[in-house]
């Protein structure tokens, strides 16, 4: 059990930030991103034994996160939010720097994309290799390249459009 917790901690440390980015990019909401990330790692914990001998463990974690995000249906909003009182993420004092505003705007623009586009672009922004993104999303690499090109254009247009306001 101790060993399992240790393995889990290592996996968590190596992947949690990127998984959080994916969940935040998908939902555009900090609380929901927390919930989805928690759900993802719960499933990782449950399947930890199956992962032991996997070379690309991050691919599997991403796939669980993608599937968790896709099956998310704003159900959480209907549930009691009592568990959210103690945040997983320790929110720092709000810093309204220009950089933070730019990041917030970027998340808002990502929220305007289609669901699968949101998932793909957060992986692109986190610099995952295309082969891995293709493996995670189950799309051929050729098709993925076309999609990514289109999503990049769309996001750039959105960002520049909203930045002007």
């Amino acid at each position: 059990m101790v060993n399992k917790e240790q393995v889990f901690k290592e996996i968590f440390q190596a992947n949690s930030r990127k998984i959080y980015h994916l969940c935040y990019g998908y939902t555009g909401d900090n609380d929901l991103a927390n919930d989805l990330m928690q759900e993802t790692f719960l499933k990782v914990w449950q399947n930890l034994d199956k992962f032991r001998n996997q070379a690309m463990i991050s691919t599997w974690i991403y796939r669980i996160a993608v599937n968790t995000c896709l099956s998310h249906l704003r159900v959480e909003k209907r549930q009691a939010k009592d568990e959210l009182t103690d945040q997983i993420i320790e929110t720092k004092a709000e810093d309204f720097s220009e950089k933070n505003e730019q990041v917030a705007l970027l998340y808002q623009c990502i929220a305007k994309l289609e669901e699968n586009e949101r998932i793909i672009i957060t992986m692109v922004l986190d610099e995952l290799p295309y082969a891995e993104i293709a493996e995670i999303s189950g799309i051929s690499e050729g098709n993925l390249r076309v999609k990514i090109h289109r999503i990049k254009q769309k996001l750039t247009e959105l960002y520049n459009k909203y930045e002007r306001f």
Binding site: F8, K9, F12, Q13, S16, R17, Y20, M37, I88, I89, E90, T91, K92, D95, K99, N100, V103
Partner: peptide
Amino acid sequence: QQEPELSQ
């Protein structure tokens, strides 16, 4: 972007 502090 500012990285969140995640508590495992």
